[in-house]
């Protein structure tokens, strides 16, 4: 497959961010922070009225987009900035485009956007295409 600078990467969409998944991630991360598990705690802290997705889940959504866009490719490097929270029930869309092509390496920029609220994560990645 040929890739070119400016090519748009097919989006990866989560129709509704899962509060149940956050419970799994509390176990994966060994981190039972209640802002991911208990709406009442989120409200009490003035952070909103829905549970807040763990940050690395948002990274995973963006990784999923990259892996789907470059089948058999490998993420060599990835940097992402956390700009805002993602909440349970949000519709999240990861999207991006190619910014450089150098042999079998492809640079991309990407973002994670929430329907109605805009960009909550943004970053860059380098993908190595495997023969």
């Amino acid at each position: 497959m040929n890739y070119a600078v400016g090519d748009v990467i097919a989006p990866f969409t989560i129709e509704s961010v899962s509060a149940e998944a956050m419970k799994d991630w509390a176990v994966f991360l060994a981190d039972p922070n209640p802002i991911h598990l208990d709406v009442e705690v989120v409200k009490a802290k003035g952070l909103g009225d829905r549970v807040i997705n763990q940050g690395p889940i948002n990274v995973a959504y963006m990784m999923n987009m990259l892996m789907a866009a470059f089948p058999g490719g490998t993420i060599e490097a990835m940097d992402s900035r956390f700009l805002d929270n993602v909440y349970g029930g949000d519709k999240a869309v990861a999207s991006g485009k190619i910014t450089a092509v150098d042999g079998n390496r492809i640079d991309c920029e990407f973002s994670l956007d929430i329907e109605g609220r805009g960009t909550v994560n943004a970053g860059t990645a380098t993908i190595r295409l495997n023969a």
Binding site: I35, K45, G55, P56, V59, T74, I75, E76, A77, M78, D79, S80, R81, F82, G123
Partner: peptide
């Protein structure tokens, strides 16, 4: 007091 993630970067040399 609520630490917040600012950014995360990773460099892989293998899976």
């Amino acid at each position: 007091d609520g630490p917040m993630m600012g950014s995360s970067g990773v460099r892989f040399s293998g899976p």
